[in-house]
Amino acid sequence: MGDFKKVWEMMKVVLGIEDPWVLGAYIGSILVMLLCVVYGALNWNKGGEDEEEQIKEEIEWHEKEKEMEEDELGLWDEEG
């Protein structure tokens, strides 16, 4: 706890912001950005195990979406 306080006081000086709420937002934004980086890095190759099947699903979805665009927005006409 003492360490946390020390770091906090140091951050106040380093960032030149005294209000704990605004300092919290500044540091919090950096921390959640790092959370995303760490999560993304740790799971970089996960979630693609059943990729073949997922791609099949995705192709079907895209076909349907394209159909919708042809039928309802009249897009893609020129390209057939």
């Binding site: 950096i30 959640v32 993304g40 979630g47 693609g48 791609i55 895209h62």
Partner: peptide, 21 residues
């Protein structure tokens, strides 16, 4: 719904986090 696998979402978290920041 346009993404092809969960892996793309995982990877996008890393890049998206930095981008929005």
């Amino acid at each position: 719904m346009m993404v092809k696998s969960n892996r793309e979402l995982n990877r996008a978290v890393l890049i998206g986090g930095i981008f929005i920041f």
